[in-house]
Write a protein that binds this DNA or RNA. Structure first.
Lengths: 353, 353
DNA sequence: GTTAGCACTCTCGGGTGGAGAGTGCTAAAA
DNA sequence: TTTTAGCACTCTCCACCCGAGAGTGCTAAC
């Protein structure tokens, strides 16, 4: 494909450009890396690299800049995937140990940790199952004709909604409704609840309907919810000289778009996927790269995390970091939320204080 | 204080500057408003207004720009507080009716609605009580030695946390623990739970301790949580020509700082408070104004909402909008969450289907 | 008190011109 | 055949200047 020397040269160009954000010239690179041949030779090689599309010229008399194809070749063939240093791992783990109490909180924390570790923006979706199942529901009266409906779904997700009744309902009656519905619908999916023909009073049917709606919305929502951190990391980079470019990026990272940012259909079921510049279908992303990884149990509860930054990024370090953090999160997920992590049968042996 | 004519002139200058974002000159304003005196007269008046600090000069030969003091005078004395047009109110109300199911969701929605209505950024804090009281707790097993603790607090707030036990605990036992703790602690505050000397088993004590921690964290957290929308509205305004200024604003609006943005100690308990530029203690806010209002029941559950934008903003329209939306939200809050809205006694008369 | 006239000040945009960086080509050296 | 030195050429960037335009402040007349 490429001669050894040209490969190495490409590697150096990328490394230098990632550092300096300046187009790199033949002279510069020769001095910087004390290469054993002259600038002229490098110019010849660069001309070839450019012919083949690995680097390009912003304008005639400027240095060279890696193209998307160049970065792609680098990621596939040149980059050595080095492991993170032990102390970095330690630091990251430590930050996770201060994780908040609620799921939302620690997902958000993970986005912040990732963003800081790679110096770019990070998006982390909430972990989801294919179809949620009801574990328990609870009705708590808050007014004569209003109650808070709390659903506990599998994998420790909690949903809540205020229900209004056409007439006053007493606390006792709420308890009995909850009781009945728990018996009827425990471990059912939203769809199953809809199709069920359990005997229900009118008011129970009203509640069951709300339960179904919430669960279906949760499933439909799927990866809608995600946390974004570190936008300022990206915006501070030299590529954002003009406020126009900043606004563009901010538009891409709008709250409403976050979930669409991650191309779920195109990422591997496991491991890190890299999408460089125009490899991404979305036009607005053509100047940015995405380093994505799913996390969680491959056939259970999963989410995805992504680093977003200019195509000029340290892919090696970013990939290692994403891989590591995805691992840590998968671990935490099975420790805390995965019901299959420890077989249920062990229950029998257990004693309680 | 100011002669009538100077007042009116100030009003026109502000109105023109808010529109155009350009320093306004004597000629411009004369032509624009067809004033019955000449530019020279206006220049004389402007010189006086400047002497007294209501307007200023960016540089010698530029037009005039309102100062913070000028805006302040405008807000106090010149601005007519006009009501929002009925159809705008209707539109806003309509947007609220599509409100989400969970409290977080509709607070976030309200921030988006406010931001759009005023064309600036908006921050809305979650509504809080002074001290939360436990309404009900629930333990749902998710692994042999882990359970999800769900707390329902007054005002329909829900908190959740995964609890790990030193040994396996069966579902029945969880139910009995929950039962016992519900009896002991229902309608208690976190502090009261801590001081209680109820008879508890070791594992119950473990759970009660977690409950206390969560509740105290929730109270301490207070206004920590807030939603921000419409940053791009602000960033698109002409005052943000340089990316530097954009970064400054983004820093102020960082997620972690949101709650500190609202100077709770300095806002009125009711009605709209306006803080213009350097009236705000925070240096970073000297170029921005804040239009703040609390919402909710004055002595019950309350939150605050604020509009953030450059000092050059349409104060009249912004104030009206904030006032109106705060009203709508207070209304919704008492409809859905305020337990005192309808006296409990009515319960007696109610019948249920 | 108001106005016209006018000199003055400052910004902004366009144009110019050199410095600097880097290229591509050619011809000689290895 | 590959590598290198030399050199003309190109393009950007920055500093500088200049004139147009907008607006002011002052003065003197109405």
């Amino acid at each position: 494909m490429l001669t050894e020397r040209r490969s190495q040269l490409l590697r150096l160009i990328i490394s230098e450009y990632v550092d300096s954000a300046q187009p790199v010239g033949s002279e510069t690179i020769m001095r910087r890396f004390e290469l054993p041949f002259s600038a002229a030779t490098i110019r010849n090689e660069m001309a070839r690299l450019e012919e083949e599309g690995f680097i390009s010229h912003p304008h005639t008399s400027a240095g060279r800049v890696p193209s998307d194809k160049g970065y792609r070749y680098y990621v596939e063939a040149l980059m050595q995937a080095r492991d993170l240093p032990a102390e970095v791992k330690q630091t990251i783990r430590h930050q996770f140990h201060q994780a908040g109490r609620e799921e939302d909180e620690w997902i958000q924390l993970s986005a912040a940790v990732l963003a800081r570790a790679v110096g770019n923006a990070a998006v982390v979706t909430l972990p989801r199952t294919a179809e949620s199942r009801l574990k328990r529901l609870e009705l708590v009266g808050i007014q004569d004709n209003a109650a808070l409906l709390v659903l506990v779904l599998q994998q420790a997700r909690v949903k809540q909604q205020v229900l209004l009744f056409p007439e006053a309902v007493e606390q006792e009656q709420l308890a009995s409704i909850a009781n009945h519905l728990n018996q009827a619908f425990s471990s059912h999916t939203g769809g199953e609840i809809g199709r069920s023909n359990a005997q229900l009073t009118q008011i129970e049917w009203h509640v069951a309907n709300a339960v179904r709606e919430i669960m279906e919305a949760a499933d439909r929502g799927g990866y809608d919810e995600a946390y974004l951190e570190g936008v300022r990391n990206v915006l501070q980079k030299p590529e954002f000289g003009t406020s126009e470019k900043m606004l563009n990026l901010l538009e891409v990272l709008e709250h409403r778009n976050l979930a669409r940012l991650i191309p779920f259909s195109q990422i591997a079921a496991e491991g890190v996927t890299v999408m460089i510049g125009s490899e991404n279908d979305r036009d607005a992303m053509h100047e940015y790269s995405l380093v994505v990884s799913p996390y969680g149990n491959p056939d259970g509860i999963t989410g995805a995390m992504a680093v977003v930054g200019p195509t000029r990024m340290d892919y090696s370090q970013t990939i290692s970091t994403v891989r590591f953090i995805a691992g840590v999160m998968s671990e935490m997920l099975s420790t805390y939320y995965d019901e299959d992590a420890v077989p249920r049968e062990l229950d029998q042996d257990a004693t309680a204080s």
